[in-house]
């Protein structure tokens, strides 16, 4: 399984803070594309983190079993 987490306005939009999906050997960009379609997400509105690290380029990353992916809207700490 892989875990997907949603935060802030994205959790509000998807009405979901966390979900688990069956593992498939997709690239991270393919997974994100699937999620964009599933939830009609605006790609400009979030960053992607893989196992707690921000990812700039999702193209070359193949998902591993038990990865944790997070979709992060703009930060607002401070």
């Amino acid at each position: 399984m892989i875990t997907i987490k949603y935060f802030g306005m994205l959790a509000e939009h998807t009405q979901c803070s966390e979900e688990q999906l069956e593992f498939k050997p997709l690239t991270l960009s393919e997974l994100v594309q699937d999620l964009k379609v599933k939830y009609q997400l605006n790609p400009a509105s979030f960053h992607v983190a893989l196992n707690h690290k921000l990812v700039q380029d999702c193209e070359d990353i193949t998902l591993q079993l038990q990865d944790e992916i997070a979709l992060l809207p703009p930060f607002a700490g401070g």
Binding site: G8, L72, F75, A76, G78
Partner: peptide, 14 residues
Amino acid sequence: LVNTIKKNVPIFGK
């Protein structure tokens, strides 16, 4: 610290 935390730490505010 203040600038880096605001920029890099995933905290969200409603």
